[in-house]
Simulated assay, not measured.
Amino acid sequence: MSRPATTQQRLNPHKLLLSKWTAAHPVKREKHFLVSELFCDEQGEVLAIELQAVLTRRSERIDWRELQNVERWKIGWT
């Protein structure tokens, strides 16, 4: 019996720095991204990340949990 497709990827937020990501639906040719910074609270828990587009060098801050959505993000550069 096959398992239903999951909509989340299991991630360790502390290992995201410098990880590579591919947008499932690129906008303005921005397909490949790199996690360039982690934003943590006083206890060291990761709250957000900075994603940088490889092509344009544009950066945006997002909640790290957004990377768990397999409909928007794929691990690695494909």
Rank of each mutant, 00 (worst) to 15 (best):
S19I: 04
H32K: 05
R10N: 09
L17H: 11
E42N: 08
F39Q: 14
S36P: 00
E37R: 10
L55K: 14
A53Y: 07
M1Y: 07
Q68H: 01
D63E: 15
L38Q: 04
W64H: 03
K31V: 03
W64T: 06
L18Y: 15
E45K: 14
N69S: 12
T6S: 14
R29M: 06
K15R: 15
Q68Y: 03
V70E: 12
L18G: 00
V46H: 01
R61T: 14
R29A: 08
L16C: 06
A48W: 03
K74Q: 15
V27E: 15
F39E: 11
E42T: 12
T56R: 01
L17S: 01
K20L: 13
G44P: 08
S59E: 15
F33Y: 15
V54M: 05
K20F: 01
K15T: 15
L47G: 03
W64M: 00
T7V: 08
E42W: 12
L55E: 13
K28D: 13
K28E: 12
E50R: 15
N69L: 07
A23E: 10
P4H: 09
W73S: 06
A5C: 10
L17R: 01
G44V: 04
W64D: 02
A24I: 12
W73Y: 07
T6N: 11
E37F: 00
Q43T: 09
T56A: 00
K28R: 11
E37C: 02
H32Q: 05
S59K: 15
R65S: 14
R61I: 15
R58A: 12
R72Q: 13
V35C: 05
N12I: 10
W73T: 01
I49M: 00
W21P: 03
L38N: 02
A5H: 07
T6M: 08
I75L: 15
L55V: 07
E50Y: 05
P13L: 02
P13K: 05
L11Y: 05
S36T: 11
H14S: 12
R72Y: 11
L55Q: 09
D41G: 06
P26C: 10
Q68P: 00
R29T: 03
W21C: 04
L17P: 03
C40D: 06
V70Y: 06
